[in-house]
Amino acid sequence: MTIADLHRTFTLDSVSDGALVPVLSAMAAAGDLDGQRGFEEAMVHVIETCGDSPADGWHAFYVNSLAELRAGTVDFARIHRQALSLLSGSSVLEVGSCFGLFALQCVQDGHVVDACDICPGAVERLADESLRLGLPLTPRIGDARALPYPDRSVDTVTLIHLLEHLEPGDVATAITEAVRVARRRVVIAVPFEDEPSEHFGHLVSLSEEDLLTWAAPWVRCGVRATVFTDCGGWLVLDVAPCSDSGQIKPRLLAT
């Protein structure tokens, strides 16, 4: 399949994250796209040309993607549902928000939401769409390694499929920043892959052992840490003495 084929395939009714990503992943595996840059450029091109204007394309993408995630008809819906079940408190910060589809679902569920991403274009797009969708949140340009938020300013900080994008030496810094900002809980999710997905911008393959290694220094500090697997791996850090919501599953690490 070529980019021209994609242009003819997707319309305002059909364009969505769940529909586009498998097709583009197959093209990347076949060598038809040039790494992460080619993947991202193809995705943006399809979205912005599937309607009469780029704005219409992006709006359709957001509407359709949120609908399929809520309906549970795409693979990533399970990850978002798990993350939503683990939120503690009324305010959420999604770090590495990208399109902000998780952040927007948090707004739909009644949370006060901040979202940050290192890409200015993604932040601007999320700001525009959150207003158009009537789902107000506060997006901001921010680096996971130096979050632009005060200490203990948000109940739950999430890093959902973010840490695999960082160099190994930066992971501890990103987790430390999330713990600094969180009042109650930090929720981390990562994919388990045999090889890093280059077209997604993944730099490392991760396993449960990596999660246990990341948790260990926090456990020694008295933080309650939980590691479990479900469509990849999860690490939940309860940074407050009591965290009164969310469904924590084994395995619990002893302090």
Rank of each mutant, 00 (worst) to 15 (best):
A178K: 06
G110L: 09
V107R: 13
S16V: 04
A26K: 14
H165Y: 02
G222M: 14
V227P: 01
V113S: 09
P168E: 11
R184Q: 15
S243G: 08
S153M: 08
G233M: 01
S88G: 13
V187T: 11
L253P: 01
T73I: 10
A103W: 02
R132E: 09
D52F: 01
D52V: 07
V15E: 02
P139M: 03
V223A: 12
L163T: 03
V74W: 04
M43I: 05
C50M: 02
C106Q: 09
N64M: 11
S91F: 00
A182H: 08
D151Y: 05
D230V: 07
R8W: 04
H45C: 14
W214M: 03
A29C: 11
P139G: 06
D210L: 09
A4G: 13
V219I: 11
A4H: 15
L12H: 14
E124C: 06
H7L: 09
I248K: 01
L253S: 00
P191F: 05
L24C: 03
T173E: 12
R132D: 14
G31H: 03
R251H: 11
A122W: 04
L162T: 03
T176M: 05
F102D: 06
A29D: 14
C221Q: 15
E208M: 13
R183M: 11
V63A: 05
T226D: 12
L20T: 04
R185I: 10
R185Y: 08
L93N: 03
F228S: 10
P54K: 09
M43Q: 09
D109S: 13
R8F: 07
R140H: 12
L147A: 01
V44D: 10
G100F: 11
A215F: 08
R140V: 14
R220Q: 15
V186T: 08
M1C: 07
H161V: 11
C116Y: 00
G38E: 04
F39T: 01
G72Y: 09
I160K: 03
V223M: 10
Y62L: 10
G57P: 05
I141W: 03
S53C: 04
S85N: 14
V219L: 02
D17W: 10
I160Y: 06
W234M: 07
A29P: 00
T9H: 09
H202R: 10
E195K: 14
E40Q: 15
D109A: 14
R125H: 11
T255Q: 11
V112D: 15
G57N: 11
R140P: 01
F76K: 10
I188Y: 08
T255F: 07
P241V: 10
D238S: 05
C221F: 00
D56I: 00
L163W: 04
Q36L: 10
H45Q: 14
Q105W: 10
V186N: 00
I248V: 13
H59N: 05
V46R: 04
S88T: 14
F10I: 02
L159P: 05
V171E: 03
V46D: 02
T229Y: 02
S197K: 15
H199I: 08
L135C: 06
V44F: 05
D238Y: 01
R132L: 13
P54T: 03
P22L: 09
V112K: 15
A29R: 12
